[in-house]
Design a binder for these strands. Structure first.
Length: 844
RNA sequence: GGGCGCGUAGCUCAGUUGGUUAGAGCGCCUGCUUCACACGCAGGAGGUCACAGGUUCGAGUCCUGUCGCGCCCACCA
């Protein structure tokens, strides 16, 4: 999140950077953030600017650091002794090695020492904000505690929110099991993908409108293996179209069954425990792992002849996002946030345009999610994080929620209180980030100045986890939006286009990439590839290309500095002079266009266009043409001439324009050109006027030079060999800068007005000019081949236009400017075609 | 099951509201160790824009369908 300080927009800059490991996936944003951290540190060191670092919320990251500290302690070392770099290296290694198994590790370590959980939280300011947010939401009835079906991860040993559960299509089986009726008359067949849960069945359901089973009212079935009598109930839960139309009801292990159970007052039999093993309720299966129990149940049913059939079945299996363990739905008592009222505020904010997504690809998905949002389970049974500020009374079993540990139970006055052992979902505190970092709940100067923030930049993969929660929390707790715009950037994928995640191990270390290619090159490469809406495939080639660009900038700067020295000018960036020469008028016009495009692209968050425009301008306009021409003008000992002022003016503006993309090289060059203060403080360029006449004239000049080079290249003539020739200009020769053409094309030309009387020899003809060169030897085959190809292309282009121009409908319905420009282009091409044909005839 | 997106040069990708001969980088071919840069310069080859229809004077761009690929969301046994 960038805050522009409204009090001093040109002096102050502040930057809030979330830690790179919040989700474990590799973002474009993370890579850019790393370079921003570099930049910010540099700025602060350099000029003492108001660069504000705000605390992040990476609990797992902090926990990892704790583990490393702990392992150091066992070696008798401290963090200070080994130094920051070595410490960070070890943290990285540890993360690589253990990744998602952090919970397990933390528990082991936590049990073996006396660390209190509070040590795992971050800043006291953040803890206070979390506490305050929880208490206020609780007071408003937006946080409640209840017993519901939750997603339980046996790997992490904690409850999860819906978002932390990922669905994966898997080839599984559908087991059809016979449940005999109590009277022994027949049996019902139920289908299930989780046969072990049958041990917890408390009913069998059929659809009330299903004629096949209308005679079953009031009857009971015998639950196989457990030999328990269970009622047969009529409920919509059974779909007559699916399978046999009979469904087993397991209220303790399935959300739908839980609802059905409520409707029919069915008991809950919890046969799978938090450890993923069968409970005592599972009778003979108690103690077995759930998957082992599944095998045993199936085998036992088989033995009893109660297994009707096994069908292959594709099902979306639920797995824990963090550790990949198959999630078990369990009835459990947890804390929840009531999300509907919060979501309503968010929907209103987005609908009314107070929050805008850029690009808007995700609008539809976002609305869909918000409209169908379910309550958010926020309690976690982890070993780090913010403790829930709730105290359980041992006397009356009631709960007291308070900002500070209460001395007595609010309900019965007992002092036998114990704090809830659970901690909060990390995204709960993350959701407070935009304002907790500014001093909330206090009404601080920072909060008044910077809130709401202007822009959130984040990856779409945490849109719901983070952005949506910040909106809900912000609107509820501060009454205003946390940010006005959300730019959802793309993800960087690995070369096989897979998402980069720590669990897959296909991540790259941004610091390492920065080291290898240079931070600026990495930024340029990523920005150039970051077209909104589609992901970036990580490509080393792109990094290398961007590095070459950096070198090109560096070398161009060297050229300028060397020549300044020769000219007797101290390194400086003076105000631009008067554009008198064609190349000056042209480059200023091109620069204006580039500046306009870049500013527009920045506003629209089209960063790839920024990178491309800047690349194109610098390499192919500034270096290839402008500097090549200016080199001819610069004289030793000249002092600061108008030529120099123009050159330096353009260069200076370019550096400022490029600075957000490549902060380091531009800053460095800025200082090498004698600037005292940071380039970041210089005004960002705004577009000036364009000069279309200059652009046209320059295009003609370029065409003349290219024509000469092509003739030379076609005939394989040594570049250094000076060629003589004649240039016939249709509209006179006054504006032709002969010197430039001669130098850049290594030719010596007579310039005449009018058309060439004779097109024999090595000739390039255009409607504007004929260039005839005297070559040692003219290869007519080459000449002919080129002309024939040219003629073919022109004929096709003209034929296409003629077809359009012959159509009444086109002439009547197309806008005038389209018709006009088509006619003009046709005339031009026809003229060129005539010239080419005439030349071809002479070659024949 | 619902939603979003992709398929354009050998490779990686641009192409904002439909409008002149569809672009870039890398790679490839030819020639250059010219005093900023061989991480470079000059020139060049290479595309029936996945396929089939449709709308339109005009489609890479809009619509429909097909094929292939990817992502997000989803408690149907």
């Amino acid at each position: 999140i960038f805050h522009a300080d409204p009090k001093a927009p040109d002096r102050t800059f502040s930057l809030a950077i979330p830690p790179p490991n919040v989700t474990g996936s590799m973002h474009l944003g993370h890579m850019l953030e790393h370079s921003l951290i570099d930049t910010a540190i540099r700025w602060r060191r350099m000029c003492g600017y108001n660069t504000l670092f705000l605390p992040g919320v990476d609990h797992a990251g902090i926990a990892t650091q704790m583990v490393v500290e702990r392992s150091l302690a066992s070696e008798g070392l401290t963090r200070q002794q080994i130094g920051r770099e070595e410490f960070e290296r070890r943290v990285w290694v540890w993360k690589e090695k253990y990744g998602h198994r952090i919970t397990e590790q933390m528990k082991r370590i936590g049990e073996s020492c006396d660390w209190s959980r509070e040590r795992f939280t971050l800043s006291p300011e953040l803890s206070r904000a979390v506490l305050e947010a929880f208490v206020r939401l609780h007071e408003r009835g937006l946080i409640y505690r209840g017993t519901y079906m939750v997603n339980w991860c046996p790997g992490c040993q904690t409850a999860l929110s819906d978002l932390e559960v990922k669905h994966e299509d898997t080839q599984a089986s559908l087991w059809h099991i016979r449940y005999p009726l109590k009277d022994g008359s027949r049996h019902l067949v139920v289908a299930t993908t989780r046969p072990e849960t049958m041990l917890g069945d408390t009913a069998v359901a059929v659809n009330p409108n299903d004629p096949r089973y209308s005679d079953l009212a009031g009857t009971t079935a015998i639950l196989p293996l457990m030999n328990r009598e269970i009622p047969i109930v009529f409920d919509e839960i059974a779909d007559p179209q699916f399978g046999t139309g009979v469904v087993k009801v397991t209220p303790a292990h399935d959300p739908n069954d839980l609802e059905a159970g409520k409707r029919h007052n069915l008991p809950h039999v919890k046969v799978i425990g938090e450890d993923a093993r069968m409970t005592a309720e599972a009778g003979p299966y108690a103690g077995l792992d759930r998957f082992a129990a599944r095998k045993r149940v199936v085998a036992d049913l088989e033995k009893l002849g109660l297994l009707e059939k096994i069908e292959p079945y594709t099902l979306a299996i639920s797995k824990c996002d963090r550790c990949g363990t198959v999630v078990e739905p369990l009835v459990s008592t947890q804390w929840f946030v009531k999300t509907k009222p919060l979501a309503a505020k968010v929907l209103d904010a987005v609908n009314s345009g107070r929050i805008v997504f850029v690009p808007d690809n995700w609008n539809k998905t976002f609305f869909n999610w918000m409209e169908n949002i379910r309550d958010w389970c926020i309690s976690r049974q982890l070993w780090w994080g913010h403790r829930i500020p709730a105290w359980h009374c041992a006397a009356c079993r009631e709960i007291t929620v308070a900002r500070e540990a209460p001395a007595a139970c609010k309900h019965c006055g007992s002092a036998r209180l114990e704090q809830d052992p659970d901690v909060l979902d990390t995204w709960f505190s993350s959701g407070l980030w935009p304002f907790s970092t500014l001093g909330w709940p206090d009404n601080t100067e920072d909060l008044r100045t910077y809130y709401p923030t202007s822009l959130l930049i984040t990856g779409y993969d945490i849109l719901f986890f983070w952005a949506a929660r910040m909106m809900m929390m912000g609107l509820e707790l501060t009454g205003d939006v946390p940010f006005r715009q959300v730019h959802l950037h793309t993800l960087v994928r690995d070369p096989q286009r897979r998402k980069m995640t720590k669990t897959k191990g296909n991540v790259v270390d941004p610091l390492d990439i920065n080291e290898r290619y240079g931070t600026d090159a990495v930024r340029l490469a990523l920005m150039g590839a970051a077209a909104p809406g589609t992901d970036i495939t990580y490509s080393e080639e792109r990094m290398m290309a961007a590095r070459q660009f950096g070198n090109k900038m560096w070398n161009a700067a060297r050229l300028i500095l060397l020549n300044m020295d020769t000219a007797g000018i101290a390194p400086s960036l003076p105000e631009p002079g008067t554009p008198e020469m064609l190349e000056d008028r042209w480059i200023f016009s091109r620069l204006s266009r580039t500046t306009a495009s870049v500013n527009r692209a920045l506003e629209q968050h089209r960063y790839h266009e920024v990178a491309e425009e800047l690349w194109q301008f610098f390499w192919h306009d500034f270096c290839d043409w402008y500097l090549e021409i200016k080199k001819l003008r610069l004289a030793p000992g000249s002092g600061l001439t108008n030529d120099w002022r123009n050159l330096l003016g353009v260069f200076s503006e370019y550096l400022r324009l490029q600075h957000p993309v490549m902060p380091f090289i531009t800053e460095e060059l800025w200082h090498r050109f004698g600037q005292e203060t940071s380039i970041a403080l210089a005004a960002y360029p705004q577009a000036g006027a364009t000069d279309e006449a200059a652009e046209r004239e320059m295009a003609l000049l370029q065409e003349m030079i290219t024509a000469a080079r092509k003739l030379r290249a076609d005939h394989g003539i040594d570049k250094k060999l000076l060629l003589e020739g004649v240039l016939y200009c249709r509209n006179g020769s006054k504006s032709v800068d002969l010197d430039v053409i001669e130098k850049l094309a290594a030719v010596k030309l007579d310039v005449r007005t009018g058309a060439a009387p004779d097109l024999t020899g090595a000739v390039r003809s255009t409607p504007e000019f004929d260039l005839v060169l005297r070559l040692p030897e003219v290869d007519h085959d080459i000449q002919r081949a080129r002309l024939v190809k040219e003629i073919e292309q022109l004929e096709k282009a003209i034929a296409d236009k003629d077809r359009q121009l012959a159509s009444e409908k086109f002439l009547n319905s197309a806008p005038a400017h389209v018709v006009d420009s088509l006619r003009a282009k046709r005339a031009e091409q026809a003229a060129q075609l005539d010239k080419s044909r005439a030349t071809l005839n002479t070659v024949r």
